[in-house]
Write a protein that binds this DNA or RNA. Sequence first.
DNA 1: GTCTATATTGCGATAGAC
DNA 2: GTCTATCGCAATATAGAC
Lengths: 185, 185
Amino acid sequence: MASARDRVLDAYETLLIEQGSAGATLDAVAAAAEVSKGGLLYHFSSKDALAKGLFERLRERSEADAGLMRRSPEGPVAYYLLTSVPGNESPIGLTRTYLATLRIADASPTGAAARAALAGVDADGLAALVEEIPDPVLAWLVQLVGDGLYLRTLTGAPLTGGVSVDDLLDRLRQIIGPARSAATG
Amino acid sequence: MASARDRVLDAYETLLIEQGSAGATLDAVAAAAEVSKGGLLYHFSSKDALAKGLFERLRERSEADAGLMRRSPEGPVAYYLLTSVPGNESPIGLTRTYLATLRIADASPTGAAARAALAGVDADGLAALVEEIPDPVLAWLVQLVGDGLYLRTLTGAPLTGGVSVDDLLDRLRQIIGPARSAATG
DNA sequence: GTCTATATTGCGATAGAC
DNA sequence: GTCTATCGCAATATAGAC
């Protein structure tokens, strides 16, 4: 069994994703992690400390995921887009941690820390994409497409009307291909 | 001054966007709308009814915004992308209503209604984009780029490293241009 | 149509046993 | 390191005056 600390963060993520900030109470997190509220508060001394634990995990996973992108046999672009598709998450759980953090990215001081951590994920991802697509406009375009797919994990909107993610990936490859050669050679 | 009902929905949106579902309490909404809690509960008999009022407004604004897209002199694509940029919102407030609804799109029954309303916005937007870009893959790609920009309104991540939205729009026009002619003949 | 007052529940956090 | 018990406060919602 995972450490109590990790189980607490897992439960916190799940509740944030499934029920939003209103549902992620200390009671609910403790119950889902199968520890008592006192046990939870031993590891994270306040709700704010719990949120900061989530941001730290997000930074760690972002760094690790950027490494996976770079070492991925299909390349950073395909890795980024495929792991952005609802249901096709990053193997180390970055997607879940990202979506959970999004839920508490509000205008409060803690929310500002959340947004800073999310901005770090964006920067890590773009840096890895730029290694495959030197053209900064195209790299950003690819990232935005992936982020649009991310958003659909939240809205649950169907992947639209007869067009598959593979079609999308093929088209993006056509767009990137010539531009890449132009930029690199 | 706007009607009490509209002021309540405006306040609810603002609180959801700025403080998330935990901050959008009936007390806080009533205070921000400058009505008493009793006055609020006259117009919306419960918190759930308030949420449903938001979803109804989202559907209305989505329909109206799709009309603006179609009549926009610069075309649906430019309209969609420009109003997706953080700070450059839809003139009828669709962006705000969309982001507020996103905050309560959780796994609850109410959240399911939220996601259904959001999926409707996606469908309306795509339908308007397809009128300018008949190729469904390209139309979806443009929408996803816009959605990625939307997401940045939530994360507050900087519009990245030296690349402007105008650069992005120009590049998208290059990509769409030939494909559009090819598709339309 | 809008208000005050209040019942009731659930929250975050503390104290202290084991 | 994990638990139970409890305090103080804020939440939703109701009742009823104006």
